[in-house]
């Protein structure tokens, strides 16, 4: 599908979605509460078939966080980016690791690096950081470690 066709189809599925263009892919902004049901539709709809989650990450905008999901379809080869704003304090969003199983490890990484709580994640704990790491999330913009961080 072209971006225009995708837009029409996605507006049907989720009328509250807003679009951004101009980047490499079609960007779709959604509310975090809609994410799980919307993700299921993206995956199971025969004309969309977004079966491949190739990048999952988070961006700290200081006032809020944004979850970014890059999706593609191995059948139709169209790509989209889903973005969802999260609160800075106690950010939380539903997990999608039942739909795209690679999300399990990716979400654990975002959990420890940004402190995002993935609701209903089967095994949400530290992945890369050492055991006993105390609550500070290293990829947040306000993280500072004067001893171990070398400023270039």
């Amino acid at each position: 599908m072209t971006n225009e066709e995708l837009k029409i189809k996605i507006t049907e599925l989720l009328p509250s979605a807003t679009f951004e263009e101009g980047g490499d892919f079609l960007n779709i902004n959604i509310e975090s509460k809609d994410w799980l049901s919307f993700a299921m539709q993206l995956n199971s709809d025969n004309t969309l078939a977004f079966d491949y989650l190739f990048c999952l990450t988070c961006v700290d905008w200081k006032t809020h966080l944004t979850m970014v999901y890059h999706l593609t379809s191995t059948k139709f080869r169209h790509n989209i980016v889903i973005k969802s704003k999260l609160e800075k304090v106690n950010p939380a969003i539903e997990t999608v690791c039942k739909i795209w199983r690679t999300a399990e490890l990716h979400e654990r990484e975002v959990y420890e690096m940004f402190g995002v709580n993935f609701l209903n994640h089967p095994d949400l704990r530290l992945l890369i950081l050492p055991d006993g790491w105390e609550g500070r999330n290293p990829l947040l913009k306000d993280f500072d470690d004067p001893i171990n961080m070398i400023k270039l």
Binding site: F54, C55, V59, V68, T102, L105, H106
Partner: peptide
């Protein structure tokens, strides 16, 4: 501002 590397090994390991 933010950079993310999607490394093939990470996903393959999953």
């Amino acid at each position: 501002y933010r950079i993310k590397f999607r490394s093939p090994g990470f996903s393959n390991l999953s």
